[in-house]
Design a binder for these strands. Structure first.
Ligand SMILES: [Zn+2]
Ligand SMILES: [Zn+2]
Ligand SMILES: [Zn+2]
Ligand SMILES: [Zn+2]
Lengths: 161, 161
DNA sequence: AACAGTAGTGTTATGAAATAACATAACGCG
DNA sequence: CGCGTTATGTTATTTCATAACACTACTGTT
């Protein structure tokens, strides 16, 4: 799916293929092994689809693309895999899009922040600095577990119209 | 609806009633008049329900509570009202909850940020300082239109267990 | 190897959230 | 009034997500 209002598909993060894709999957495999987590077939397949994608993917896009010969998966298969991938930091859900992206940052655990283009649908992850917000939360007496931030606007390519 | 895992219902923002409720609705009425916007009956009713609530309300909670004698509204009625209220800054959608809250801050336009308690379900709005994130976005060449931030954790009351 | 315990999967069905489409009504204005 | 615009009413459908339960695959123990 693609709800773009214009077409600037020259994203900063084209989907991975071939060598790069195998390398990313191998890295995930290794990080799972380190913590006795299992990157099982459906989990690996969903991660692969996310990595191949060049934009946030909807759950039902993944469901449709899951099988070998165009055979779709059952919803729980994909939702369970997504839950796992999110838990381990391999993927993020973008709430304002009901869509998922593979994590594009180094490090195995971090807060998520996204710049989302309202025009072409691209979503760029960036390393957030939540110092100010964490201070505000502390002031309010909250014990913060996680933070997500989603900024909507126009990407560099789409601004130039 | 209430998905709390424990019960600490002493929120900072109990629902408005009587005088305070009428005052808040009157203020909204006035702010609409200033900009030639119409706070029509269904819009006013949905805002009233949000203001009366002491926690984020789901769209279908609003739909169920909408009518006088327990008569529900039709979904588009409420979704349209919510769209209006969000557009004018009277309400916010909390993406990670699929729920809505009335705006609790002064000023008629601002970015939204929430502290959400995973225990009691409370959602506290706070005045965000997005300086750091806006700088990051600028660095990436994005033209940001809006930002939302949702922090999950435990509120002061629920921490003390 | 047999066993029990846990984590993961397959499958069916259902629930929850949101919108499309089109007809009707109210408002604002010349 | 007559017209364009904005908002509402209504029916139906689409999109998104999970419950429940049976079955399988790993893990460690006896
Ligand atoms: Zn990430
Ligand atoms: Zn763009
Ligand atoms: Zn607000
Ligand atoms: Zn709490």
């Amino acid at each position: 799916m693609h709800t773009a209002t214009c077409e600037h598909d020259d994203h900063d993060h084209p989907g991975l293929t071939g060598q790069a894709l195998r390398r990313a999957l191998g890295a995930a495999e290794r990080r799972c092994a380190e913590t006795d987590q299992r990157l099982t077939a459906p989990r690996r397949r969903v991660l692969e689809l996310l990595l191949e994608g060049d934009a946030p993917l909807k759950a039902y896009d993944l469901i449709a693309a899951f099988g070998e010969a165009g055979a779709p998966a059952k919803p729980p298969t994909v939702y369970r895999a997504l839950e796992f991938l999110e838990r381990l930091g391999f993927a993020h859900r973008i709430e304002s899009l009901n869509a998922y992206v593979p994590c594009r940052l180094e490090g195995d655990s971090h807060q998520a922040a996204f710049l989302i283009c309202d025009c072409c649908g691209a979503a760029e992850e960036f390393e957030p600095d939540f110092t100010a917000q964490l201070a505000a939360a502390k002031g309010a007496g909250y014990a913060v577990e996680s933070i997500t931030l989603e900024a909507r606007g126009l990407c560099p390519a789409c601004r130039k119209d």
